[in-house]
Design a binder for these strands. Structure first.
Lengths: 144, 144
DNA sequence: AGATCTAATTGTTCCAAACCATTATAGAAG
DNA sequence: CTTCTATAATGGTTTGGAACAATTAGATCT
């Protein structure tokens, strides 16, 4: 019927993406590494690079439900990694801002990830690394 | 301190992987597509290609905890997508085998994924698709 | 036969995410 | 200016995926 399901590039991508997500999920779920969890990392990263924003904007950015981001942001605030600042223009709205502690955690966590990745890609050529990074970025933009 | 965090390829890969996993997670969590869930898909896929095996082997293959696979396999059995066959050589052990129904679901689901991916990669060159597939496979093998 | 090792299941916990309902404020229309 | 509607954010609840720990039952080894 299908059997060797893997003739064409699209099928390869399709399957390998499924495998990838499984593998990455278990790695990031590993608490030995996790000073931050994945959601916290992306949120902090966004707040670090793009500056303060509300849950609405963050949810749009990551295509997450607002409630999801709301909870994640609340968790970060509770840990002191972000500050929640009322929007002076709109009594309903808030901004989140990364704190110094949050920045510190972000940098540490990112470095840990980089170290592990560097080890993992030890045998890869510079060219392959560059291509892979470019294609991943391109793919992410395609999804968006 | 860091700011443009994205000079070198490793950093690009590191960040884009985090983004990718987020995006893919929300897509596969979308129940409009999900006739199967992700874990079911990979399990069925493995049983389809590699033939029957026990939870032990499956857990090793995916680097999952045995308990996780046990539950996933039980769910599949409950839906009639796999049969659970006692190992005649070992009274403790079982094999799981994909059923016709399971195969049907697998094929349907895979086709749905392929369709969506094809649409997504509409603007991509054949070359980029091929490269991306190859690099993903290579990366997955590196993780393993 | 008893000690130990192994296959699998089940209880529990945690994280990530969705959907739905709710509260509170803003803005628009009468 | 008050009522209606739209929007910002939160919280309740459910689902899926995964881990770890404890348990049961069948192997294996001495």
């Amino acid at each position: 019927m299908l059997k060797e399901m893997n003739e064409n590039p699209l099928e390869t991508i399709e399957l390998e993406l499924a495998v990838l997500i499984r593998r990455l999920t278990s790695i990031t779920a590993d608490k030995r590494n996790a000073t931050l969890d994945r959601s916290a990392y992306l949120l902090l990263h966004q707040l670090y690079l793009q500056g303060s924003s509300g849950v609405r904007a963050l949810a749009d950015e990551f295509q997450l439900d607002i409630s999801t981001v709301s909870r994640q942001a609340a968790a970060l605030e509770q840990k002191g990694y972000v500050d929640k600042v009322p929007d002076p223009m709109d009594g309903r709205a808030y901004f989140y801002q990364i704190t110094d502690l949050g920045t510190k955690m972000l940098v540490e966590y990112k470095q840990g990830r980089l170290d592990r990745l560097t080890k993992l890609l030890n045998g890869w050529s510079d060219e392959d690394c560059e291509r892979f990074g470019d294609l991943l970025r391109k793919f992410n933009q395609s999804i968006k």
